[in-house]
Amino acid sequence: MNSAAALVPAIEVEGVARSFGDVHAVRDASFTVQPGSVTALIGPNGSGKTTLLLMLATLLRPDAGTIRIAGHDPVADPRAVRQAMGWMPDVLGSWGSVSVRRTLEITGRLYELGTEAARSRAQQLIELVGLDALADQPTRVLSRGQKQRLSLARALVHEPRVLLLDEPASGLDPAARVDLRVLVRRLAGEGVAVLVSSHVLAELDEMADAAVYLDRGATASAERVEQSRAQVRDWRVRALDPAALMTALTQLGVTAGATDHLGTLVPVAGEQEAAALLARLVGAGVGIVDFGPAVGDLEHTFLDLARGSDAPAGAADPAPASTEGSER
């Protein structure tokens, strides 16, 4: 990644709005994504994530605002944007009677690669996403997760500098999710700017460098995000002896929340206070085996923003269990 590329944001969105008749899908979205970074696009169902991605992918014209992808305007010069951008849609469409290999070759040809180049790129991508065994099968036999991988490979055919992933992890098994995470981080390491929308927030926590929160069509301002992050939140504490932990907490004057088989929830304001609490608990001789935020950073902010905007939709979407699962 050279320094000139780093100066120009890979994605620049300023005051973008788009409505369908009376439905204001996106009202006011502004954010930037730097080359070599992974940015999470987070928001409840119907908050306009897909509409926003469609505008970035040159498929939909914004009603207002400006978009720059790799320095190009998708409305004025969609061809230049398409050359630089790969898009993985949330809808898993594939040419049912065409084989996986042919699908990637055809996509390569549509990106104006030569026949030979398209063929070798297809082979590379098949290996990259692990579809070797199914390479010559028609795509209609693929499972949801396999189609998801094909869709990702298709977005990478022309080695884009900007990658837009709409719900890339849905339908993937845990191993494939890890593969996806590793791949996305590797691409970012090579200088690709990645924008990922997902509901699996714990997943994004480990993948993303930055986050854009979209609520009812508007991106949350940096101040609001900061405010939410700083709010008192639950940390989960698990000790060898739960009774000793409860006693210690009471002595320290901390009101403990619910206790379940995973531990006790303790409200803590910020990481400073968390560190201090841990030190005091350890000092009190409690055998702590697990001490961490009850929910991931993104999820906490997401839930807080959703609550703050009193939007009931989608607030309970990510199951807490999935948070735990991915931390292992």
């Binding site: 992918a57 898009w87 849609p89 469409g93 594939s94 549509l110 990106y111």
Partner: peptide, 16 residues
């Protein structure tokens, strides 16, 4: 038909 099957947009984002 392609639009319903979700294969039109993936062609539209290419250079075609």
């Amino acid at each position: 038909g392609d639009r319903e099957a979700g294969t039109l947009a993936t062609t539209q984002v290419t250079l075609a």
